Amino acid sequence: MKQVQLGSQGLVVSAQGLGCMGMSTTYGPSDEQENLSTLARALDLGVTFFDTAEVYGPFANEELLGKAFAGKRDKVVLATKVGFEFTADGKLAMVDGKPVVTGRPAYVRAAVEGSLRRLGTDFIDLLYLHRIDPETPIEETIGALAMLVREGKVRTIGVSEASAATIRKAHAIHPLTAVQTEYSLFERGVECNDVLGTIRELGIGFVSYSPLGRGFLSGELKNLDSLAPTDFRRFDPRFQGDNLQANLRLVDRITEIAASRGAKPSQLAIAWTMNAGTVPIPGTRRVKYLEENIAAADIILTSDELAALDEAAPIGAATGDRYSSAMMETLGH
Rank of each mutant, 00 (worst) to 15 (best):
A110W: 03
A111S: 15
A111D: 09
E113H: 13
E113Q: 12
S115I: 08
R117A: 14
R118T: 06
T121D: 10
F123T: 15
L126Q: 13
Y128H: 15
Y128D: 03
I132L: 04
D133E: 06
P134M: 02
E135N: 14
E139P: 06
E140Q: 15
T141K: 04
T141V: 11
G143R: 04
A144N: 13
A144L: 10
A144D: 10
L148P: 07
L148M: 14
L148F: 06
V149R: 14
E151K: 07
E151C: 09
G152F: 07
G152T: 03
K153A: 04
T156P: 00
I157K: 04
G158P: 10
V159M: 09
V159Y: 02
S160A: 12
A164M: 08
A165D: 15
T166I: 15
T166W: 00
R168L: 09
R168N: 10
K169F: 07
A170M: 03
A172V: 12
I173M: 14
H174G: 02
T177E: 13
A178Y: 08
Q180F: 05
E182W: 04
L185R: 03
F186P: 01
F186E: 05
E187T: 14
R188M: 05
R188V: 05
G189Y: 05
E191N: 03
N193M: 06
N193A: 02
